[in-house]
């Protein structure tokens, strides 16, 4: 997730102080992604360096954000507005599959003698469903918080897709003839071609 662009989005509503940006970021993402003050200021300094935000001249500052003199107020520049518009419409790079640890574990489990792949799959499935129970409870505890609900929905759909993959993997492994215990699919499939070979051999 881009904190940088989230800051630009918050500043598109008008000039704001760093502390206020942090508070709003957390509130709008439903407190799902806490942010420390250091991250906020480092991000703002980089945005200023790149000409996407600028500090508000001292005389123009109102009471917004409880300025104690130590913090600056920022506003979006024209380049910042263009960058925000471009970013919102640019799909994130999902083209190359991530190196997924869970996928690796299931693939490896099929090769480890004495390992019940279904049991490995179930351990991960249970953990994912437990996480989903927690997220569902968080969403229902404050169903009126739209930002929170959207952020939690995204997490639930992501976890759900992993559970579905586990379900599909279990079914595919079963179809491939690995009843789950020490057999692995490649061995289980082997008899068929061998049988055909023998059938073709003249006696």
């Amino acid at each position: 997730m881009s904190v940088r662009h989230a800051m630009l989005a918050l500043l598109s509503e008008g000039p704001k102080y760093g502390l206020r940006l942090r508070e709003e970021f957390e509130a709008r993402t439903g407190d799902v992604w806490p942010l420390n003050v250091g991250q906020v200021y480092t991000t703002l300094q980089r945005l200023e360096r790149d000409g996407l935000v600028a500090t508000v001249p001292e005389g123009d500052r109102g009471n917004d954000g409880g300025d104690d003199g130590a913090h600056k107020a920022y506003h979006l520049t024209d380049d910042g507005s263009s960058e925000l518009a471009r970013w919102l419409r640019t799909p994130p790079d999902l083209s190359s599959p991530p190196r997924d640890e869970l996928v690796m574990k299931v693939l490896v489990a099929m090769r480890v003698p004495g390992t019940d792949v279904r049991e490995v799959i179930q351990a991960h499935r249970r953990y994912l469903v437990e996480l989903m129970q927690q997220w569902t409870r968080i969403r229902e505890d404050d169903a009126s918080d739209l930002s929170m609900s959207l952020a939690v929905d995204a997490e639930l759909f992501r976890l759900d897709s992993v559970v579905r993959w586990l379900d599909a993997a279990e079914a595919r492994i079963a179809r491939a003839g690995a009843p789950g215990s020490t057999d692995h699919p490649d061995q289980a499939r082997a008899p068929l071609p061998r049988h055909r070979r023998e059938a073709r051999t003249p006696r």
């Binding site: 179930q122 499935r125 249970r126 994912l128 469903v129 989903m132 129970q133 997220w135 569902t136 639930l156 759909f157 976890l159 759900d160 559970v163 579905r164």
Partner: peptide, 13 residues
């Protein structure tokens, strides 16, 4: 459906 099951207090497999 895991999303529906996640509403439950307990999920039995």
């Amino acid at each position: 459906d895991a999303q529906l099951a996640s509403w439950a207090d307990r999920v039995v497999f």
